[in-house]
Design a protein around this nucleic acid. Structure first.
Lengths: 335, 335
DNA sequence: TTCCGTTATGTTAACGATAACACGCCCTGT
DNA sequence: ACAGGGCGTGTTATCGTTAACATAACGGAA
């Protein structure tokens, strides 16, 4: 009883037209009379016909896929970027093929390899550092390559991002302007989290500019750095550098963890300690005190990437770099 | 200079074999001599050949896709389920086609329609309520349908989930056992969030069982319900039902928001107010006081779903229902 | 030696859609 | 009245891979 599913040919026969006309009826702009189209769609519905995108892709040599890799799904920032992408690409009928790398460049390579086999129209990756083979694959893919969330030194193709180092520098400026000089940084320097490492580099460079001691660095573990790891790092910081006046954390999540550690120890924030994060996550605006942070405008990164992908379909262009300036957000935790 | 990319035929010619042999060389178990295989793979690498999964899918009539829809990407719980799925399916070479519905059943329908065109091997949806057309599409898809995160009254196919109502009941039991009787619930009854609505229903039913007043209900808005909305809801609750002793929130995020509202107002938690959440998010274990919550074991839901999908490929079976019992986690906010 | 089974490889046709081209038909302008 | 131009539809061949079948080469058992 499991007869095989109907094809366009079946629909065509039932509707008394040629398969080509059925094909046209399923396209948006194709020229089919309204009468014929409605008959065909009705017939298709009755037969339970489901369009076969695979066959369509093969013949037309376009997949309507845009491949996207992010380090982690469970991250409000990357999720927002994906949302910006989805919303920007949907009107064009492009579907997102989403994968997460777990902050692992080898996993990214595997994912890119898999995705390219699906012949996406463009590929969006997070960050500007990749394994040599991943780089090679992207360079020879023959499709638009978009690197996001970073400003790579040697971009592969297009770039939609910002300087993590500069962003952190703006937060250091804020502390220095308020007269705080004994600053610390919580976050890893794991090779896997290049954005975290860039932020840390930016912290060190900024302190050096001011002639301050840039050695109050506490490793919070491998990404994704959790709230709990932020709390543990704060405990370590208090032990190793008790003179610290303010700390910048690699993300709002670790910053919130650090804040809770202070609360558990009865350390006043602000007052005895000031804390800043990164990412403008929900928790940063809701917690008490609210956390100063940096908004990297993740939604806009996605939206701009989508816009550029669509524009490149219309008219190819040489590699572009779109810079999205992060915004400093000052709240109760640093005042 | 943009010559078109090499195909298997090109690789075959260059390697001096037939296309079929190249095809075999790219499969795992196919019988090709080691010598020939390495020559072919080497040749492919040199030519920059990229396997075309689209053509492969069309001919072999299998896509190696598993379609998955979740309400939201930016949700630790659903992200964990996706992780469980990914890890379970990867060894079998199955790739996930992931989409989010934004808690919108119409959007879910659109997504299911799109996904089915890619001929996935199975489709995983979140929840047991769908638009009539979505239901019809799933019923006639001819592939394994997995409904998760719920125990639907009329399942379409397989089910991997739990009763949201029963889970909340266990938290009510906890409060009642501690002698608290004036209980409230924060969360919406929006049609879009069926799981949230189920939790609320469970709350009401449980209170009725105990003969308690089940009318202290505060709507926190439409999902996804944010921390900020949880805070606003707590403000409303304090105004409308100031006698409340304890509140159960639809999620840990709204619970945390509610907690911060108490902190801003100097209301002691626990003491003057007790708060429980749902989901066992990171924030619940880190905040001060830590929040009591319910762990629905999202990772296991994904892992079990993957396991079942693989097992069904081996041997089809009638619709199964796998129940994943949530765990009550008691912490400082309710003691 | 003969025969059969295994292994490695080749040949043919097809998966289901659509690009490219062809062709009537009707409407408009002169 | 007739040329010219859309518009709606049909025909043919093809996208790149692989299922199914065919075949060559070889080794070991009888």
């Amino acid at each position: 009883m499991t007869r095989k599913p109907p094809t366009m040919a079946d629909v065509a026969k039932a509707a008394g037209v040629s398969p080509m006309t059925v094909s046209r009826a399923f396209k948006r702009d194709a020229s089919v009379s309204e009468a014929t189209r409605s008959v065909i769609l009705q017939t298709a519905e009755t037969l339970g016909y489901v369009f076969d995108a695979t066959a369509s892709n093969l013949r037309s040599q376009r997949s309507d896929f845009v491949a996207v890799t992010v380090p982690s799904l469970n991250n409000a920032n990357f999720a927002e970027t994906v949302r910006g992408l989805t919303e920007g690409l949907r009107p064009a009928g492009l579907q997102i093929l989403l994968g997460y790398t777990d902050y692992d460049m080898d996993e990214e390579e595997r994912l890119i390899d898999q995705f390219l086999r699906r012949r996406p129209e463009a590929i969006v990756v997070t960050g500007g550092r990749h394994t040599p083979r991943a780089r090679r694959l992207l360079e020879h893919a023959g499709i638009a390559v978009m690197e996001t969330w970073d400003l790579p030194d040697a971009p592969i193709g297009h770039v939609i991002g910002f300087s993590n180092a500069e962003a952190v520098r703006s937060m250091v400026d804020h502390f220095v302007a308020r007269g705080l000089t004994r600053l610390a940084f919580i976050g890893g320097d794991a090779a896997r989290d290049t954005r975290g490492t860039d932020r840390r580099r930016g912290f060190i460079a900024a302190l050096e500019t001011y002639g301050l001691d840039p050695t109050r660095l506490v490793d919070a573990g491998t990404p994704p750095i959790s709230m709990a790891e932020g709390a543990a790092a704060m405990a370590l910081l208090l032990q190793r550098f008790p003179e610290t006046q303010a700390v910048i954390c690699v993300s709002d999540l670790s910053a919130f963890g650090a804040l809770t550690e202070c609360q558990r120890r009865g350390i006043a924030v602000p007052g005895a300690m000031e804390i800043a994060g990164f990412g403008n996550y929900d928790v940063a605006s809701v917690c008490v005190p609210a956390l100063s942070t940096i908004d990297p405008h993740p939604r806009r990164i996605g939206a701009e990437t989508a816009r550029l992908i669509l524009s490149l379909r219309e008219m190819p262009s040489p590699p572009q770099t779109i810079s999205i300036a992060p915004t400093l957000i000052l709240r109760g935790s640093t005042s």
